[in-house]
Design a protein around this nucleic acid. Structure first.
Lengths: 126, 126, 126, 126
DNA sequence: GTGGTCTAGACCACG
DNA sequence: GTGGTCTAGACCACG
């Protein structure tokens, strides 16, 4: 796994875990891989992964059972969806619209970029 | 001026200077306010502002004339526009579309949010 | 380490790091000594060394891994070589030839000085 | 007149004056143009030119006659030649040879660059 | 007056 | 432990 610079690694790992949940690789109630296993797999510091699970726990996506490990919480899928939707509509989108406005970019150009992105995705999937 | 926590102060000051250039308050060739004047006005440390101008210089937005101060570079407006436009289309927009795709959000919903944002801006300007 | 007055300390430290890379003391991928260790060893301020690494990073000689430290970049040796070679042929040498021309000094005299310098180096190494 | 960034403006002006002396535009004993005239002509600060003449005076190239102005000193041509020759052989050349050595560049390559520079100067004079 | 650089010391997010 | 950032204060060359 490659990490981007802009975002904290621990948050990128959180995204990675959430993606697994959404994809069904981790079902609700499943035991999540241990902090140490994730750290080994992704070649990051154990503390970093610990912070990831602390974050996931605070957002109701995992629950800790002491001595047993982290488990995907009931309602995790929904919690993830809500969290992301909220971020999307309340943070990402407003920021983008502000930037667009300042640059004199209108909805037309955004639509066009969207269509181009769609085409790219269609012909060069992955 | 209020600073946000997410972004470095020196970068927020850089944005502030760029905005002045785009707004025509600072024309190309104009002398920018001195490092010390900006520091006093924004109530930040002189070194912080010095870092801002170092950054602006590296991006071709100001040129330093020794002993005289910082001057808005020829082509600064274009440089700022290009920089911001590039960020918009190559970073912000793709990230947004990716997020949208993952959430099953289509262009329709983005358009609708855009219209809502427009209305907000219209009725509650500033 | 003794610092000269003509050049900024942070740039002299950058040269010192580059020399270590060229000498093989620091291989590509190696972790560079921490900002604080270098500051302690060279008896300069931590911020000064931080500036050095910022400079090295901008020139592709080190990469920062957050929380882990600075690492010698892939291709650092080549980047340093190119940087220095370019300075030599495009700046130092033309300046010298211009000065020589203005003084009526020809290649013969330069060659002779070269031979003398060689001899000095041979008999008084270091 | 265009100023380079690396060298102090006052030293570049000093070179400019010395060049005039060597070219015969200013003969020994001639009155040099006033500090204010030079400042106006080159569009620099008066203090900068004052520093230039202070420097030239210290190196025996001009003499000040209070109330009358600066005059090209007797022996100015020779003083300039000596000064430049000394800089050339004791500073520029050793620095260049050091840099060359560090880069593994020998006298052959310097000679070749010299020949190329000569050709350039011959075919594209000025 | 102007920016460039440096020090000493601090707090922070991140790992 | 690691680099990033900021402050307060200082001295410098240069103009």
């Amino acid at each position: 796994m490659e990490f981007k610079q802009k975002k904290s690694i621990y948050l990128q790992i959180a995204d990675w875990v959430c993606d697994k949940v959404l994809a069904g690789e981790l079902a609700e109630g499943d035991k999540a891989p241990s902090v140490r296993d994730v750290a080994a797999e992704l070649e990051v510091n154990v503390n970093t992964v610990a912070r990831t699970f602390e974050y996931l726990q605070q957002h109701g996506i995992v629950v800790v059972r002491r001595g047993l490990g982290n488990f995907v919480a009931d309602g995790a899928r929904e919690a993830i969806g809500n969290m992301r939707r909220e971020t999307f509509f309340n943070e990402q989108l407003p920021e983008l619209f502000n930037a667009a406005k300042a640059l004199g970019i209108g909805i037309k150009e955004i639509e066009e970029a969207y269509r181009l992105a769609q085409d790219d995705a269609r012909y060069m999937p992955k």
